[in-house]
Design a protein around this nucleic acid. Structure first.
Length: 700
DNA sequence: GGTGCGC
DNA sequence: GCGCACCAACGCTAA
DNA sequence: TTAGCG
């Protein structure tokens, strides 16, 4: 028994990064800052080598959600109303920059002071705010902040992106925050840890409303940090609503030294302008001046409302309001206004002026705008049901031995040549590849099970000689499932059909870097589970054109009310899958694919082509629907590709299919973290299929 | 990557 | 016991 | 029949 005999293999050093700083909690006195052991963390990070100090990072952004929710897998933070700021701390040098990489170094100089006692090299993410005299975060005050007399600065840190040569972004949020908490000195009054609250989303939201906070953030505990991305794993829920209202007039209180005291607002309902109340806050002197300038040509004698509203109405807070005079305006300007609720009678409570919408005509003003539905949340809910997605597996092979024996699904495997470099530029080895497939097995197997495979083998890495193998008859172990076929020559042969991770690792161990399953299963070999659209650029196309074509494909599918799921091919293009649930034949499927491809080509005739023959394509992007045929294969979702950079064919959200996406975004080094964080977002491809008849009827 | 042959 | 050669797709269609 | 393609 090899496994038990080998004992002294990998027990190496590597504790958590240890620093010493004055007031900080010492790491040794508390438990290690990682929920798992350092060994596990190291293993977690094993695919990445020491990462250099990042030059710049754009912050990860939150998506907007319409209402709070409760979920133990999410944590809740305060949404600070200030400037997002990333701090680069290197060898005692401090650089604090905005979202757009503008330096805050001079502007908010007191913050630099606090970082002087830090002894670590790190990249931190947080929000700078100003507390005004009332003790509340004040965005306007922040913008006008010049010195400590203008209010108290705070820098709330909520994330850690890099620490002492370790890229933290691939770690789950909770682990990043645990380490972050450890390294923030306790004696600083400006630099603070932005806490999370162990409560339900709804309770926390109510609390936030009461406290007058701008909103809350919900963050998925196991989410990774994806720079520059507006993620669904971070959601912001605002306590205030906004609407677009028409400015119908303004008032001026007796004895006021301002240009105006409030704006009188209305919205159109059934063609009539309805009064929705005054707004008296949210503008400073400068915006008032600008507004007055815009009002000048609109002044009118006539009140645009049907009835003159009671703008002098006393309120609970102002039983004896100052006498105000009114100037009516022609209803032409649109203001964006925030408010908390609508009182009976349609009057806004706690309205605040946000901005003049110069891009909108009065007739276009809408009651509610933006606010994405909680669709986002429902999606993640689905993921949680998927138990396999929750299991965090250890790696299969240790980092040292060149040969290792493992039992998988009851079968013994001898893995040889584990040091062999498969991706020479990056140095990824056969071991890295096997570890990847072992970890991705629960996610990729649904797309391989019951599907005959074409093995595309690279036993000597991506630069070595490669070959295809379909017939496994002579090489299959007894446990291997086979699927018989007859060649056009009349020879009887057998495809292999993977059933479990044992089969997956068999293929990987054979040098099959890429997994190439049929589009149908052996249960219904002539009925594909999905329809493929393969966007395959020529060397003359830019990737931007691929993205544009994918977006147009999405648009065409939307018009037909057909769902489509995109993934990066991992090579040069993008694949789009339409779920069919094995209800149609390959012929029908291909015709449907042709229909989509043709429509896309008609919209983008300049740089796309649906010609099968390369020479007829004239260097255009090939919209390939012909792979919808029996026995054809395509790299599976989550498959590695034998290309430089060890890219992964990664399922994407449509929102990610936009300018800036690159083919190397996802690779062997970061794919596992991404997949664990997002779950299998391709799952609907294996779900309910489309009703092709209905779609075609709608077209006729 | 696995096999079989010749040395 | 080793180095080495050899093997490991397929179906379609244009020309 | 072969060459090209995916």
């Amino acid at each position: 028994m090899w496994i038990s005999r080998k004992k002294s293999t990998a027990r190496k050093k590597t504790a958590a990064p240890e620093k010493k700083t004055g007031q900080r909690r010492s790491i040794s006195e508390n438990k290690a800052p990682f929920s798992s052991s350092p060994q596990e963390l190291l293993q977690h990070l094993s695919v990445q080598k020491k990462k250099p100090f990042p030059e710049s990072i754009s912050p990860m952004l939150a998506s907007l959600a319409s209402k709070p929710f409760n979920d133990p897998d999410w944590l809740y933070e305060i949404k600070w109303d200030g400037y997002r700021a990333i701090t680069f701390l290197q060898n005692g040098k401090v650089e604090i920059v905005s979202r757009n990489n503008k330096s805050f170094h001079e502007t908010y100089y007191p913050i630099n002071e606090g970082f002087k006692q830090w002894k670590v090299n790190a990249v931190l993410d947080g929000e700078i705010i100003v507390i005004n005299a009332k003790g509340k975060a004040d965005f306007a005050a922040l913008q006008e902040w010049r010195s400590e007399a203008d209010g108290e600065l705070r820098y709330y840190l909520f994330d850690l992106l890099w620490l002492e040569g370790m890229d933290m972004t691939a770690l789950p949020l909770t682990e990043r925050r645990e380490v972050l908490k450890e390294i923030i000195p306790l004696n600083d009054e400006i630099i603070l840890y932005s806490p999370d609250f162990d409560t339900t989303g709804t309770t926390f939201f109510k609390q936030a409303q009461k406290t007058g906070l701008e909103g809350i953030l919900a963050k998925k505990k196991d989410s990774i940090y994806e720079p520059g991305k507006r993620t669904r794993n971070w959601l912001k829920i605002k306590t205030e609503r906004t609407l677009e209202a028409i400015i119908a007039g303004y008032t001026l209180n007796e004895g006021s030294n301002k240009l105006f005291s409030s704006l009188l607002l209305g919205i159109y309902e059934n063609g009539e302008l309805q009064y929705i109340g005054p707004v008296g806050t949210g503008f400073n002197k400068k915006t008032q001046e600008e507004l007055m300038l815009a009002f000048k040509p609109l002044r009118s004698k006539r009140c645009p409302f049907k009835e003159i509203p009671e703008y002098n109405k006393p309120s609970r807070f102002r039983p004896n309001p100052p006498k105000a005079s009114v100037t009516w305006l022609k209803p032409a300007l649109v203001a964006e206004v925030s408010y908390q609720t609508v009182a009976p009678g349609g009057i806004l409570r706690h309205p605040s002026f946000k901005a003049l919408r110069t891009d909108k005509k009065a007739s276009e003003a809408k009651t509610e705008h933006a606010v994405k539905p909680e669709k986002l949340y429902k999606k993640t809910k689905q993921k949680e049901k998927d138990k396999t997605a929750k299991v965090v597996r250890k790696t299969l092979l240790n980092p040292t031995d060149a040969t290792q024996v493992r039992i998988i699904n009851g079968s013994s495997f001898t893995f040889n040549n584990l040091h062999k470099v498969f991706w020479p530029v990056e140095g990824y080895t056969k071991r890295d590849m096997l570890n990847y497939y072992y970890q991705v097995a629960p996610y990729i197997l649904p797309y391989l099970k019951n599907r005959p495979q074409s093995l595309n083998r690279f036993p000597n890495g991506i630069k070595g000689k490669s070959f295809y193998q379909k017939d496994l008859t002579a090489h299959a172990p007894e446990w291997m499932k086979l699927f018989p076929y007859t060649t056009s020559e009349g020879e009887h042969k057998n495809f292999m059909v993977p059933e479990d991770e044992r089969a997956l690792l068999f293929m990987a161990n054979a040098g099959a870097i890429e997994m190439n399953p049929w589009n149908s299963t052996i249960q219904k070999p002539d009925h594909p589970d999905w329809c493929l659209i393969d966007l395959d650029p020529s060397s003359k196309n830019s990737f931007e054109q691929v993205i544009q074509t994918a977006q147009v494909t999405k648009q065409v599918l939307d018009e037909l009310k057909v769902p489509g799921y995109p993934k990066s091919s991992g090579s040069t293009g993008i694949h789009i899958y339409i779920p069919l649930n094995a209800k149609y034949t390959y012929d029908e499927c291909q015709l449907f694919g042709k229909l989509i491809a043709t429509r896309v080509h008609e919209i983008l005739p300049d740089f796309t082509s649906i010609e099968r023959l390369t020479k007829n394509r004239k260097g255009k992007l090939y919209i390939d629907y012909l792979q919808n045929r029996p026995k054809a294969t395509l790299a599976a979702p989550y498959s590695l590709r034998p290309k430089p950079g060890a890219p992964v064919s990664m399922p994407l959200f449509w929102e990610e299919v936009k300018k800036g996406l690159t083919i190397t975004d996802w690779h062997i080094g970061n794919a596992i973290a991404r997949i664990r964080s997002e779950g299998d977002i391709f799952k609907p491809v294996l779900g309910k299929g489309i009703d092709m008849k209905k779609v075609l009827k709608g077209l006729a």
